[in-house]
């Protein structure tokens, strides 16, 4: 199924949970925040939130800024 991930089209082999997606991206344990379809998905819900086709996923982190 396809999703939008950080603005780019991405094909997933199956309907992953957010935890599984984060794991696949080798981001487990990183300090990130996740938004799906413009709604925050709290860390506590990553394991229980399954992505659907067409979801728009944003994964962000902190970088240098003023």
């Amino acid at each position: 199924m396809h999703i939008q991930l950080n603005g780019d089209h991405r094909e997933l082999a199956s309907q992953l949970t957010i935890s599984e997606l984060i794991d696949q991206l080798a981001l487990t344990g990183r300090r990130i925040a996740v938004e799906v379809n413009e709604e925050i998905v709290p860390r506590s819900q990553h394991a229980d939130t399954r992505l659907s086709p067409g979801d728009r996923v944003e994964i962000v982190h902190a970088i240098g800024g003023g």
Binding site: L5, N6, G7, L25, L27, R30, I32, A33, E58, I59, V60, H61, A62, I63, G64, G65, G66
Partner: peptide
């Protein structure tokens, strides 16, 4: 202060 940006993937 910090900025919030898309994580580099891959």
């Amino acid at each position: 202060t910090v900025a919030v940006r898309r994580t580099n993937l891959g």
